[in-house]
């Protein structure tokens, strides 16, 4: 049987199409497991995992924790707000202290791009990147592709538009890498100020008009406006943003086809997506959340299988 080509999941950029296929095949099995009356398997009973979140998270943290518990791993979690990081401890020291308590794997979210990569080179544990600044969020991209594959049969050949704040989004970058690796075509759509200048060098074209972008695509992935990262005004007002880049039911109904609407959460209802769209049949937002657990179980299981006794 195949195994992953990597010992850490730092970013989609570091893995191969074969790795993605293997993760999806394994996630199919785990999706069946989490729909059983007893949703748990004992595979990782001798593995301990630390979830270290230096940045806020609800969905990702819960999803990782649940995935780990469904695999019977022992889990410790902490948030930086309650930790000695505030007292001046370095990242490597913090993690090495945790590892000396016999931890095998670290899932980390950090506000600095490259933090997960840095850690993988400096500590002896398997590292899973749960988001590093505006760099990558690989498990989110994997669960997005997994959901597209489930909904449309295949990712290859599909047209996907990512709408919103591309500049500050790690979800966008990981998605672009993952989708292109699987043979999908990607466009981005958003205010010019929130589109990175180099984006076309990634083979991604820019469509400034939302209606045209939606008419072109099979799937629209709506990103949240990350107010916490907007240090200056990138657009005049939220109201103006919504008028130009918010998806509404009227807009979707006026298209000549039915497209799939995705959102990595948390959603700002009435900003990038209206409530009736978020709750509609076309939206797969809650499927994404369910698939997130299965995909994360697959990633953790496959990485753990490479940790030798």
């Amino acid at each position: 049987m195949k195994e992953l080509s990597v010992n850490h999941l730092i970013g989609i950029k570091h893995i191969t199409k074969q790795d993605i296929d293997l993760i999806f095949e394994t996630a199919d099995h785990f999706k069946e497991v989490i729909n059983r009356p007893i949703k748990k398997v004992p595979s990782l009973r001798d593995i301990t995992i630390a979830n270290i979140f230096f940045e806020n998270s609800t969905r990702t943290k819960l999803s990782f924790e649940l995935a780990q518990k469904r695999l019977s791993a022992d889990v410790i979690s902490f948030s930086a707000a309650q930790s000695s990081v505030k007292k001046g401890e370095t990242l490597v020291d913090t993690v090495n202290n945790i590892l000396s308590m016999k931890v095998d794997m670290v899932v980390m979210r950090h506000s600095s791009p490259g933090a997960a990569h840095f850690l993988s080179e400096n500590v002896k544990a398997s590292i899973v990147n749960a988001g590093d600044g505006a760099h990558e969020h690989p498990t989110q991209a994997l669960l997005d592709s997994f959901t597209i594959r489930e909904k449309l049969g295949d990712v290859g050949g599909k047209k996907i538009v990512i709408v919103g704040d591309i500049l500050h989004s790690r979800v966008a970058l990981s998605n672009i890498f993952a989708l292109q690796m699987q043979g999908a075509e990607v466009k981005v759509c958003g205010p010019k100020t929130l589109i990175p200048k180099y984006i076309e060098s990634l083979g991604v074209s820019v469509e400034p008009n939302l209606r045209k972008a939606l008419e072109w695509c099979d799937v629209a992935n709506m990103l949240r406006v990350q107010n916490e990262r907007l240090d200056v005004n990138y657009f005049p007002s939220t109201r103006e943003y919504t008028q130009q880049y918010g998806v509404t039911k009227e807009l979707l109904d006026s298209l000549n086809k039915e497209i799939v609407i995705m959102h990595p959460g948390p959603i700002n209802r009435g900003v990038e997506i209206s409530s009736d769209v978020a709750d509609s049949q076309q939206s797969v937002i809650l499927e994404q959340v369910e698939n997130g657990v299965a995909v994360r179980m697959a990633v953790i299981y496959l990485l753990a299988s490479k940790i030798k006794n």
Binding site: M1, V33, L71, I307, K308
Partner: peptide, 27 residues
Amino acid sequence: LDITFFRDDFRRGEKPLEASETQIDFL
């Protein structure tokens, strides 16, 4: 029933374990 995730030799063998599909649509 596929028992891959219940095996007692996870991470002990040379070869990784390969799972098959479980199809049990009854209790």
